[in-house]
Design a protein around this nucleic acid. Structure first.
Length: 127
DNA sequence: GCCCTGACGTGAA
DNA sequence: ATTCACGCCAGGG
């Protein structure tokens, strides 16, 4: 439409970057996790991990973003161990088979890479 | 406009 | 493993 966006901009946070980031988060496969920085990178916004965190914090539950699949770099959960959010995240992750040990996740096993499984198990075609 | 804070990341000490 | 300093950027006071 031809309406001036300036009037909407103030109350509509749906800028292209936000949409891109949410799209990436939605695309994280079940049973896999990735970090804030990676989400930002995949959305074409390097060094914008903070924005990812802020978006998740403000995102209404109605969007059903798989926020629990986004963790910190190094495989550690972002929330303080023992906090409500922490337990909620652990619960959701375990529901889809992701092992959380002392607030940490083995990225080689559950990290969102191309084929972590294939790398570990190796191709089925050798002697 | 300045200052502090944050669901962050990286590198150095 | 921990702590600090920075870089980054949006909000809130």
């Amino acid at each position: 439409m031809t309406a001036n966006a300036s009037s909407l901009r103030a109350v509509t946070p749906s800028r292209p970057e936000v949409a891109a980031i949410k799209a990436v988060i939605h695309s994280i496969p079940r049973g896999r996790v990735t970090n804030y920085g990676d989400v930002a990178n995949r959305a074409g916004l390097p060094r914008r991990g903070r924005l990812v965190g802020r978006i998740l914090r403000d995102a209404p539950a109605t969007e059903h973003l798989p926020w629990h699949r986004v963790i910190r770099a190094g495989g550690r959960l972002a929330f303080a161990t023992g906090s409500e959010a922490y337990h909620a995240q652990v619960r959701r992750l375990r529901e889809e088979g992701v092992a959380v040990v002392r607030g940490r996740i083995d990225l080689l096993q559950f990290g969102w890479q191309q084929d972590a499984d294939a790398v570990l198990w190796g191709p089925p075609a050798e002697h």
